[in-house]
Amino acid sequence: LAFKYPVNEYPGKVNEVLLGGKNRNTVKLGGQNSLYRFEEPQPNAPVVTFDVFDIPMKGLPRPIKENFEEVMDSPGEWARKAVKEFGADMITLHLIGTDPKVKDKSLKDASKDLEEVLQAVKVPLVIGGSGNPQKDPLVLEMAAEVADGERCLLASANLDLDYQKIARAAVKHNHAVLSWAISDINMQKVLNKALIKEGLTPNDIVMDPTTCALGYGIEFSIDVMTRTRLAALKGEEILQMPMSSGTTNAWGSREAWMKKDEWGPTKYRGPIWEVVTGLTMMLCGVDIFMMLHPLSVKTLKEIGSTLTK
């Protein structure tokens, strides 16, 4: 009996989203027209974007802090170090200091932080708000203008805030938008449609179906991401955007941070928790990873690079 490789055909294709340009390097996300590399290698390797914050973040777990302690006062220096020393493909600037409950930084102060990072590195940026639904649309609108034409990824639009404002700012200043639904495919479709209605094209959207960390619901994320990617390849256009993972959620797990002698050193537990969370998401089709620890970034990139071969 002859042996035949089990290769499937897919009517659909994941959109390719371009980030960067103008004054920065470019990266491309997505573009797959198969599920596995033995059917057809991925055109673009998964991308890692390093988290950087606009405030010193004394509360970050020690294994991360010790790599960045001396640059935490300056988001620009922090970003530079992540790119130079740890090979970040991209930088995510989290403007969490803008939250009224954190530092209530003004839009003007936030714009300075953003300028600093734009000057410091040549890689494309993800620009994140604080998670405050009232302020985020204003912060991201400002960011879109400051980074005009640089095709950043604005993070994020969701149904609980004024996503129209974010989408319109992205259209006006040529950026992409992260479309975030919490592990709910129907909600994801509604939001994607709503963003397209505001003028974004399918190539301007990246989806964040939410990453529940290892041991904290990762199986929900596995199911949702797998179903989303399969739907895309089967031809469901509204789900054909590349996917993003907030892999750093892994650091919220007890196993990653809690001191407990019988579990061994947190120094190793934290990074491995981030790696396994990210790796699992990568195998479900995620294209871009927001991460914190140099070792986990390195591991993920190594495995990620094999997907294009």
Partner: peptide, 20 residues
């Protein structure tokens, strides 16, 4: 056989094999 190495493996296995 270090617990910190096996914890993520055992946890991933438990999560994947829960009945949805």
């Amino acid at each position: 056989i270090d617990i910190w190495e096996l914890m993520p493996i055992l946890t991933l296995r438990q999560s994947l094999y829960t009945d949805p």
